[in-house]
């Protein structure tokens, strides 16, 4: 009744936010949150410094790694699990890829130039990811060890193997043209951002438009019901963890290319950040939900925050503090609003 008397603009806002200043859906709240971060960073840093092409260019190069790892994390949470090994899979794949490239370049096939080395390296890296995913998936699906424990073990195992392979040293001397993947631009847009957009599109299609996506959602909502409904629960789980690991290994390739070297302990802070992003995006860690757009938006908001903090000369510790506080705040707000909704 009151709705009809509202002006068109207010009605539209009301529609988008679903009523209430903070919105009724997690996605609407996330939009509000992102806009709030954007506005406050612009005001605090000053628009002349914050709203620059250079700043957004640097965000565009930094964001894809975390976004891709978050997509991988989101997929594992869709089935009600968690994959703590994402970063270690990325690092192990990147090390295998880098070692292969260096080996091929130095070997007799080196005459073939960068192209052969890159193809061999990328192939080896992706195969490593596939193998890692199979280990995780089979342990979760067939031995039925809780995913948090499986991936806790493989996190140590894969990181350990990466350390053994490299002896803790960074691998350098990669083919020059490989840097294009992490540092180049295509049609004025950074290549990593293209890769990230492609990843998001594939994720969205797989989750929302394929039988696998629906099955994964059902397994995550209620694994016992899915089992009694004769869904191929085991195969869904194996495919979930393989896909998660493949996305992680592609991220690993991106990380090698951007840093132009590979090391066993790159990006270890990404693990907690990716969980944070997925939860901020409104994904239920208990399973059954996935939000590709939400994850994209959450990563963007957090990158805005950390670049703003960087410009205000705040330390990375302040950023860590802010991220954790936001995570807790968002969850508390979601919890309070949900209970009021009931």
């Amino acid at each position: 009744m009151t709705g009809s008397r509202l002006p068109v603009g207010a009605a539209l806002v009301n529609r988008v936010l679903g009523g209430g200043i903070l919105g009724r859906t997690p996605f609407a709240r996330l939009v509000v949150f992102t806009v709030a971060v954007f506005v406050s960073m612009t005001l605090l840093v000053g628009s002349d410094r914050f709203l620059t092409t250079a700043n957004f260019q640097s965000i565009a190069f930094q964001l894809p790694e975390l976004a891709l790892l978050s997509f991988a994390m989101m997929l594992s949470m869709l089935t009600g699990g968690i994959d703590l090994s994402v970063v270690s899979v990325a690092n192990l794949s990147s090390i295998v890829a880098a070692m292969t490239m260096v080996h091929v370049l130095r070997g007799p096939a080196g005459a073939g130039g960068d192209a052969i080395a890159i193809a061999a390296g990328v192939g080896a890296g992706v195969c490593t990811g596939l193998a890692c995913g199979l280990v995780n998936g089979c342990a979760v699906a067939f031995v039925r060890v809780p995913s948090i424990l499986v991936t806790l073990g493989t996190l140590q195992l894969f990181t350990g193997l990466a350390l053994v392979l490299t002896g803790g040293q960074a691998i350098i001397g990669l083919p020059d043209s490989f840097q294009w993947l992490g540092n180049g631009t295509l049609l004025a847009v950074p290549v990593p951002l293209w890769l990230c957009a492609a990843g998001a599109a594939v994720m969205a299609v797989v989750i929302n438009r394929t039988a696998f996506g629906v099955e994964a959602r059902l397994v995550g909502t209620n694994p016992i019901a899915a089992w009694f409904a004769a869904l191929p629960v085991r195969s869904v789980l194996v495919r979930t963890y393989v896909t998660t690991a493949l996305v992680s290994s592609v991220t690993g390739l991106l990380m090698v290319s951007r840093a132009n070297s590979a090391k066993a302990d790159y990006g270890s802070s990404y693990l907690l950040q990716s969980i944070l992003v997925v939860v901020l995006a409104g994904v239920d860690p208990a399973g059954g939900s996935a939000r590709v757009a939400g994850v994209g938006l959450a990563v963007f908001a957090l990158e805005l925050l950390s670049s703003g903090f960087g410009m205000m000369r705040l330390t990375s510790f302040a950023t860590e503090l802010a991220w954790g506080a936001f995570l807790l705040l968002v969850m508390v707000i979601n919890s309070v609003l949900e209970r009021r909704g009931k």
């Binding site: 968690i82 907690l272 944070l276 860690p285 950023t319 860590e320 503090l321 954790g324 995570l327 807790l328």
Partner: peptide, 15 residues
């Protein structure tokens, strides 16, 4: 969920 809460408090405390 305890995992996510303690993840958040850990970064708040350290930060």
């Amino acid at each position: 969920p305890a995992l996510i809460v303690t993840l958040g408090t850990a970064s708040v405390i350290r930060g």
